[in-house]
Amino acid sequence: MQAFLGQLLIGLINGSFYALLSLGLAIIFGLLRVINFAHGAQYMLGAFFAWLLLSHFGLGYWPALIIAPVAVGLVGAVIERTMLHRLYTLDPLYGLLFTFGLALTIEGTFRYLYGASGQPYATPAALAGGTNLGFMFLPIYRGWVIVFSLVVCIGTWLVIEKTKLGSYLRAATENPVLVQSFGINVPFLLTLTYALGAALAALAGVLAAPIYQVSPLMGSNIIIVVFAVVVVGGMGSIMGAIVTGYLLGVAEGLTKVFYPEASNIVIFVIMAIVLLIRPAGLFGRDA
């Protein structure tokens, strides 16, 4: 029982990262029709910025939680404006290949500068320690990650579903030409969307920094799993991406209890099963 609940918790934490990352992927894909392979690299950048802010400027976790996503979002905006936007008229596969190259470049650069080994990042003092829930010991920081990522996911969903800006985004997803003819600056929306997606990835990176080590390879390890999550969920729905992220994280955690050897492939197995039964994905609209 102890092990079960413990793994459930770890599953929920992994699920938080899967949800945040697949949410960003889904937002970018929805509007830009680009699968952002650099999402993992942007996640790694977020964690690295947090670490650099701490080690070079003495800025701790809380400033980093804001500065790192904003910085990565800005970098994303520049990349979109200067390069990525040239690819919208081409086959979407080129967007995937371009962002793949981008991911390799970013990862390679950080590996060159900081080495492949991980850097520890201390848990912020306010969230250190743990609390005894009676049936298990919960490190406060992990509880914080779960709660905070849930808030961010639901907040993003609300922005997209309930606000004016969100309605423009959804309209531009359906028919960009029509939306542009209403005088809405669609190219700016595209830049904003890519920046937002990159910032979400960076936010996940900062959240991950105290749990996993900050390493140049942390992004590519997670991005392939997130792709599988996205295939399972189908990218048609924002909520679908979030729910699938948590569900698969938990499924992975539970597998660690019952059959540890399969824990790092269980998500891929689930993906294969979903493809056999429901090829469009659990929440997908496209066949």
């Binding site: 390069m83 080129y94 371009f98 793949f100 190259g101 390799l104 470049t105 970013i106 390679g108």
Partner: peptide, 21 residues
Amino acid sequence: SEFPVTIITGLVFMVCVLVFR
């Protein structure tokens, strides 16, 4: 050399996709 191949590979990827398809 010390220089990692992935940086070059990544850059070549980006250039190819942008201007040398």
